[in-house]
Amino acid sequence: MDVFMKGLSKAKEGVVAAAEKTKQGVAEAAGKTKEGVLYVGSKTKEGVVHGVATVAEKTKEQVTNVGGAVVTGVTAVAQKTVEGAGSIAAATGFVKKDQLGKNEEGAPQEGILEDMPVDPDNEAYEMPSEEGYQDYEPEA
């Protein structure tokens, strides 16, 4: 019985440690998101679009440190934060509304985080759909 109880105690310690790591990862992701939003706020009209992409990228980098179902929630929060940063930029006159959601080359930025393969159960990952990809044929 002692062996059984000791095993359960060790398992509990492992769960607590994993929860603490997840909590730490979420806190880091939130900190990076805040950094990115402050970065966007300090940019001029020309830099705002690039700044919004930076927020998304920093958040995406930190999301990889967070495991399990938390990833889905962090990704949703990050996307809403990026959308909010863009709205703030438009409201303050840093950028025109028609410039939001495009990178410096004018290509749409939507789907940055949505296409990231995420499995809350950590069982399997699927690649994003290939609808947006084109076949590449090298020139002879």
Score class of each variant (00 low, 15 high):
K58F: 02
N122P: 05
E114G: 11
Q79I: 08
Q24W: 11
G106W: 11
E35V: 13
A124M: 03
M116S: 09
I112L: 14
V3H: 15
Q134M: 04
D115N: 05
T44S: 06
V3S: 05
D115C: 09
D98W: 14
A69L: 02
V3D: 03
Q134T: 06
K23T: 05
E114W: 14
E139Q: 13
E57D: 04
A30V: 04
T92E: 02
G86M: 02
T75R: 05
K10V: 05
E46K: 13
K45M: 08
G67W: 11
E35P: 02
V66I: 12
T92K: 10
D2S: 02
A11F: 06
N122T: 03
A91L: 11
D119S: 02
L100T: 09
E13G: 07
T64A: 09
V49C: 10
T59I: 15
K23Q: 01
A17Q: 08
A90D: 02
G106N: 14
A107H: 09
P128S: 01
G31E: 02
F94P: 08
T64E: 02
Q24H: 12
E20A: 10
D119K: 12
T44F: 08
E123L: 12
K96Y: 11
P138I: 07
A76G: 13
M127L: 13
V71R: 13
T81S: 03
K12F: 15
A78Y: 14
E110P: 04
E110A: 10
L100A: 04
V16Q: 15
K58W: 02
G132Y: 15
V66L: 10
T22F: 02
V55G: 01
I112Q: 12
V74D: 02
A107G: 13
T22Q: 00
E13V: 07
Y133K: 03
V118G: 10
A91H: 08
F4T: 00
V55S: 01
S129D: 05
S87I: 04
G47S: 14
A107P: 07
V82G: 05
G132T: 14
V74N: 01
A91Q: 06
K60L: 08
E137A: 14
L8Q: 00
Q62Y: 03
G132W: 13
S87Y: 15
V77A: 13
A91N: 06
Y136N: 05
L38W: 10
G31L: 15
L38C: 12
A78R: 06
V118P: 05
K34D: 00
V55W: 14
V82R: 07
G25N: 06
G101C: 03
G47Y: 14
L38S: 01
Q24T: 11
G73C: 15
G41F: 14
K102V: 05
G67I: 12
V49E: 10
V26N: 00
L113R: 11
A124R: 09
S87H: 15
K32D: 01
S87A: 06
S129H: 08
A78V: 11
V3I: 05
G86H: 10
E123A: 04
V82W: 01
A27D: 02
A53Q: 02
K32F: 13
S9Q: 07
M1A: 02
V40Q: 00
V77M: 14
G25Y: 14
V26L: 08
K80W: 14
P138W: 08
T75M: 09
D135T: 11
E61D: 06
P138S: 01
V77N: 02
K34L: 04
G73V: 10
L8H: 00
T81W: 15
E139Y: 02
Y133D: 12
K6F: 15
E123S: 11
A90I: 12
M5T: 02
K45Y: 08
E104N: 08
T81C: 13
G101T: 07
K32S: 09
V16L: 05
A30C: 05
T33W: 09
E104M: 04
T75D: 03
A91T: 01
G68R: 12
T64K: 12
K96L: 08
A85M: 15
K10T: 06
Q99G: 09
M116H: 14
V71M: 02
E46S: 07
L38Q: 02
A17G: 11
T81N: 02
A27E: 01
T44L: 05
V48G: 01
D2G: 01
Y136R: 12
A30F: 07
K43Q: 06
G47H: 10
S9R: 14
T33F: 03
E57R: 06
T81I: 10
E46C: 13
D98A: 08
S129F: 09
K21Q: 06
N122S: 12
A30Y: 14
Q79W: 14
E137C: 08
S129N: 11
S129E: 12
K45H: 07
E137F: 04
F4G: 00
G106T: 11
E114A: 14
E139M: 08
G101V: 11
S87M: 12
M1C: 00
K60N: 04
V49N: 07
F94Y: 14
V118W: 05
T75N: 11
P120E: 05
K34H: 06
K10W: 07
I88D: 10
A56G: 03
I88V: 06
K58M: 14
S87T: 00
K23H: 06
E57Q: 12
Y133G: 12
K97E: 13
V55L: 09
K6C: 06
E130L: 04
A56M: 14
P108T: 06
A27S: 10
G73D: 05
A29W: 09
G31H: 03
Q109F: 07
G51C: 15
K97S: 08
K97Y: 11
S42H: 00
V26W: 08
E13D: 00
N65C: 09
F94L: 10
A85W: 03
E61L: 02
D115Y: 07
